[in-house]
Design a binder for these strands. Structure first.
Lengths: 223, 223
DNA sequence: AGTAGTACTACGGTAACCCATAAGGATTGC
DNA sequence: GCAATCCTTATGGGTTACCGTAGTACTACT
């Protein structure tokens, strides 16, 4: 089982909820550290390594409120991305309200997150299971996002598609998007290719037109 | 100060955060009740009135997770609306992650909510202030949503506008929306009126086209 | 080298959207 | 009673999106 743990959550009471779970797992309170800011969390991690007493588990939320103080890392995802550069093997558990499959997919596949627990009624139980699983080198996903990684849900939505939809949602016209892609060396960039891709997306999302498509993708949290 | 309080939040640890605040205000724990479901909360309220020992404060979240069990009231807003029918004067404090001004506006103006506290780093302090304010018959809004009620932000977005944008986001064409409005006796319903109204909205939201408009309004939580 | 398959690009007709203008009806103020 | 104003509706022209078709470039396989 883990000894030294860092909890990152801007909401103090959520923080204490995690503490109770750690109590139940016989993890000593002196070895549990808390942080309400991502930048601060990163600092604590680095300092611990320098002090030759690194953390062996990170539990973090995803969304953090803006504050009076300016931050470099403004989200849990940014924090994880930054930490993975230096500590690719450090166990990370995400503990968040978000239950979007696409988010889970990205975090697990691209950022090698070890567990994803959705906050909710049964969150404490699931968090306990997650910690135990990760401690045994296993992956854990909340019931609610269980099938995030199953291939049938993964209908090959590429970064290009996301970027395309994002540009659309910014109100750009197809030829403006084409120019934007050319400027940023994104291929394909022709207007007709963009049309074609949008067609596929509309079919995939059962959308009647571009507006409908953007609305649906926003609902899914893809953009 | 209040004596008998009901806390409604599906997340247990958030619940305990509120408890600590109530401790600080010398409200006895035996008089503080908790509920993880809106239906259950409504039941507790009714029962308390029947027992001639009604609650004198309700503190509730807005969003509740779907669960295995089917609910009539699936959101804090629905709960508040239902309670206001029977108890129009009962003090209600909303305690939520949501910081959309439009939501605050509706809750305060239409549902006569007495305070709105945003969950976040300073939430406990603000919740304490809110309870004290409401206890003194005053309204309280979190710093973050302070200007929700100031008129300059309220640029006269009507129900019609919301409905129009919603129809757009469903992928309908302007003439389809026109027919829909005619069928549902919503006026005005002509295509050109719809065009005109959309024009105003686009200017108001600084949107370049319909897709952009829907994206922006979705970001603001208006639709 | 030839063929087939795939992906990107280009073009054209139809329909929807955008915008300006104007007619008809209701309300308000003089 | 009349004019002014506002709102709804109607019309037309320019622009853009939509969608099918066709051409071109690249790759892979025989």
């Amino acid at each position: 089982m883990f000894k030294k743990v860092l909890i990152v959550d801007d909401h103090a009471s959520a923080n204490s909820g995690v503490l109770e779970v750690l109590d139940g797992l016989k993890i000593e309170r002196e070895c549990v550290y808390k942080s309400q800011y991502c930048d601060d969390a990163q600092l604590k991690m680095k300092r611990a390594v320098l002090d030759n007493d690194p953390f062996d588990l990170l539990i973090t939320d995803l969304s953090f409120r803006d504050d009076h103080r300016p931050e470099k890392l403004t989200s849990g995802e940014a924090l994880i991305k930054a930490l993975r550069v230096d500590y690719p093997k450090m166990p990370i558990i995400v503990y968040s309200m978000v239950d979007l499959l696409q988010k889970v997919r990205v975090l697990v596949n691209e950022h090698q997150v070890n567990a994803y627990v959705c906050k909710g009624r049964e969150a404490s139980k699931e968090l306990k299971l997650a910690i135990e699983a990760v401690s045994n080198k296993q992956r854990f996903l909340s019931q609610r996002v269980q099938n995030a990684l199953s291939t049938k849900n993964n209908l090959e939505i590429t970064d290009f598609d996301i970027e395309l939809a994002k540009q659309l949602s910014l109100g750009k016209l197809q030829n403006q998007i084409s120019e934007y892609f050319k400027d940023n060396d994104i291929s394909p960039s022709s207007v007709s290719s963009i049309e074609k891709r949008l067609n596929k997306l509309r079919i995939q999302f059962k959308a009647d037109n571009a507006t409908h498509l953007v609305a649906k993708m926003k609902d899914l949290g893809l953009i």
